[in-house]
Simulated scan of single mutants.
Amino acid sequence: MNIAQIKQIDLVDFLRAIGLSPTKESAKSAWYHAPYREDRTPSFKVNKDKNMWYDFGTAQSGDIIDLAALLYQSKDVSRLLKLIEGAAPALAPRIRTPISPNGERLTDQFRNVKVMDLNHEALKSYFQSRGIDLGIGKCECKEVHYTCNKKEYFAVAFPNNGGGYEIRNPYFKGCIAPKDISIIRKSERLRGHGCCLFEGFMDYLSYLTLVKQGRITEGGESMDYIVLNSVNNISRAIEPIKKYEVIHCYLDNDDAGRRAVDALKELFGNRVCDMFAIHSIYKDMNDFLRDKKKFP
């Protein structure tokens, strides 16, 4: 099984397969003694809807791969996939209903989805308010119209590799399932040895705008681009990142972004360059584009 398939394995089923039973269980959650440390009072919770876990004793959280990293004391993703599959060979990935950040099932949330070229004046104004070059925005994104709770909405839509869309407007940030990373490859003639890694597509569009403005100098035309569409998707990017000799990271200047960069450095060593660390007074690429400093 690949990373995406492994992450679809039900956590409760996996824990049961390796001999662990919950001390308390409901329709939405299950509680355990933390399986990788001494835990007298059950403080390890599995959220069944999101298929994620949280350790209240250590404030750690994650998916099945993050759990396996603690169980098997390894950060080798390929090895962890084999260990998970070997520990629970009879478990099959479940087809899960994707969950939005506010807990809503995404397939229940969006109806009558229509994707088209980006032309709505309100969305053009949204790009301008974020400092994004309009030509770049129209080239890289689409316009989506949809119904939610019987009301009609529209937003900027950025496609991901799974066939879903990250959607944004001034009032909403979400995803039309499935959730996935986005990989933008150059033509075969231009494809090179490096990639640029971004946390969200606004960071990616900001980078392209900065390059166009001459404020960032890209190393020739040899870089591919990978957009995580959430720092939590970092494990999905491991396989495509492996082939690159140079990995330029433009992740957010926050704890999650720094942890992601550190994890990549442990995996790929000096192939990873933290390109945004020198701009520590800015939270992300879009703030850098707009000169919006974290501190006055």
Rank of each mutant, 00 (worst) to 15 (best):
P296F: 02
K28F: 14
L71S: 13
A157N: 05
D262Q: 03
N253V: 05
G162Q: 04
Y153E: 12
I238C: 02
R111P: 00
M202V: 04
N160T: 03
S222N: 12
V231C: 00
V246P: 06
R79H: 13
R236C: 01
K75G: 10
S61N: 13
I278E: 08
D255I: 03
F44R: 02
H193W: 04
I136P: 08
V115S: 02
E266V: 01
V227L: 10
K142Y: 15
D291N: 12
I234L: 10
E266G: 05
Y32D: 08
Q60T: 03
P170R: 11
S230Q: 01
Y54N: 13
E239H: 00
S222W: 10
I99V: 14
Y207F: 10
A30L: 10
E85Y: 03
A87Y: 08
L83H: 08
T97P: 01
W31C: 12
I241G: 01
L20A: 11
P98N: 03
F201G: 01
D287G: 10
N233D: 00
C196P: 06
I95T: 08
K138G: 08
H193T: 10
E104M: 09
I216E: 06
A277T: 07
Q109C: 06
K48M: 07
F276H: 02
M52K: 15
Y250V: 04
G192N: 03
L123C: 14
S61I: 04
A263F: 09
E221W: 08
T97D: 11
I238S: 05
Y126C: 12
W31F: 12
L70E: 07
H248C: 07
C139E: 13
Y146R: 11
V261L: 04
V227S: 12
V77Q: 08
D203K: 02
D224L: 00
D254T: 06
V211C: 13
R96P: 06
S43C: 12
V261G: 05
V113R: 07
S206L: 05
S29D: 11
Y225S: 06
R40H: 14
Y171A: 15
V272E: 05
A92Q: 12
G219P: 02
Y36N: 04
L251E: 02
N47C: 12
A87C: 13
E121L: 13
G200C: 11
S100F: 00
H248L: 01
V46E: 06
L106K: 02
Y126A: 13
R236W: 01
A256C: 09
A68I: 09
R191Q: 14
P240E: 01
R215Y: 08
K24S: 13
Y153M: 13
Q8C: 10
M202P: 04
Y250H: 04
T41P: 01
E221V: 08
R215K: 14
N51R: 07
V12N: 14
S125A: 15
G257S: 02
I99R: 03
K265N: 01
W53L: 08
K186Y: 04
Y204P: 07
A34Y: 06
G194T: 02
K114E: 09
D224K: 00
H279L: 02
N270F: 07
S129V: 13
L67F: 13
